[in-house]
């Protein structure tokens, strides 16, 4: 319980620092933010923007008032984009991104776990060597290249899957998954490689343990030994890395959302960058950062659930 409390305190500190960094970045903008945002507008409008951003007040005060707005869900307004407010954008984009990442993780684990377990069981076999080489190659291909390849082959050349766009799950389940296939596949490849490599080496170590020999001596079948006895103790590093890897995944998702026009957080963010919506962009960045930190915090919880050695320590 104590460690949980310390962890929670740490979490709050990291989130505060994170919002601070993304807010302060804005005050480092070259030149007058109001001029930048309102370029081409009449001085009156620029003055309005200046008041709204409280540019004449000291930075800490501005940060605090921004933070209170941020926490209460007030992300301000777009200055140029027509239609919608930043918070409305987040309300649809966040679930979309989360869903995309969830699908990716499920797909990646669904492929990586059996693959890692089997190659560890048959370490140094031809199958194992092939899988290792494939993983090495997969790790060397950037996600966006995979995305463009998939898009070209499946959508442009053969027209079997939609080229881009997104259909919410609530609207049409079939179409939803049809649109999700390519972005998820593009994101999954490198994740599979990372998880597979990790699980394989951990499994190989676990399979040397006495309790595995013991399980064999009990007369259990290999499949039960592998999946019931060896997998769980081997999956702990996997879990940590899966958590940390969300950072890479989010980065990849920004691009993949762009490439497949999936209206997720990354799409929103890049749109904001292109249209120079600085204040909204900072909020989006803070949200993505917080998401990442929270996911890692969640992983710590899961860790304790999976490993009784930690729970009862």
């Amino acid at each position: 319980m104590r460690t949980l409390a310390t962890k929670a305190a740490r979490l709050v500190v990291v989130i505060l620092l994170l919002t601070m960094v993304s807010f302060l970045a804005q005050s480092l903008l070259p030149g007058d933010p109001a001029e930048l945002i309102g370029f081409g507008a009449d001085p009156e409008k620029i003055g309005e923007i200046r008041t709204e951003l409280e540019l004449d007040r000291p930075v800490p005060v501005r940060y605090l008032s921004w933070l209170t707005d941020f926490v209460t869900g007030d992300l301000g307004d777009y200055y140029r984009n027509k239609g919608g407010t930043p918070i409305e954008g987040v309300k649809t984009a966040l679930p979309t991104s989360l869903l995309l990442m969830l699908y990716t993780q499920i797909a990646a684990l669904a492929v990586a776990i059996p693959l890692g377990v089997l190659t560890a069981y048959r370490a140094d076999s031809l199958f194992d060597k092939g899988a290792n080489i494939a993983a090495f190659l997969a790790l060397s291909v950037p996600g966006f290249v995979v995305a463009y390849l998939l898009k070209k082959y499946f959508a442009l050349d053969n027209n079997v899957l939609p080229e881009s766009g997104w259909v919410p799950l609530t609207e049409n389940v079939g179409e939803h998954f049809k649109h999700a296939v390519l972005p998820v596949a593009a994101l999954t490849l490198s994740q599979v490689a990372v998880y597979f490599r990790l699980l394989r080496s951990d499994m190989i170590a676990t399979l040397q343990e006495d309790f595995i020999t013991m399980a064999r001596a009990k007369g259990l079948r290999p499949r039960r030994i592998l999946f019931r006895h060896a997998l769980r103790p081997s999956s702990l590093t996997l879990l940590t890395v899966a958590g940390l890897n969300v950072g890479t995944l989010i980065s990849a998702a920004v691009l993949v959302e762009q490439i497949f026009k999936v209206p997720g957080m990354g799409f929103l963010l890049v749109e904001g960058v292109f249209s120079r919506e600085y204040p909204a962009t900072q909020s989006f960045i803070a949200i993505v950062g917080i998401l990442f930190v929270l996911i890692n915090y969640l992983v710590d919880f899961l860790y304790a659930v999976l490993d009784p050695r930690i729970r009862h320590a």
């Binding site: 001029e35 370029f39 081409g40 950072g247 989010i250 980065s251 960058v273 120079r276 993505v288």
Partner: peptide
Amino acid sequence: IAFPPLILALLIVNTYAAIPED
């Protein structure tokens, strides 16, 4: 490290070297 790498890079480039319309 709490920032996803591309997001952090984006944040920095966009503030330090954003290309204004002016």
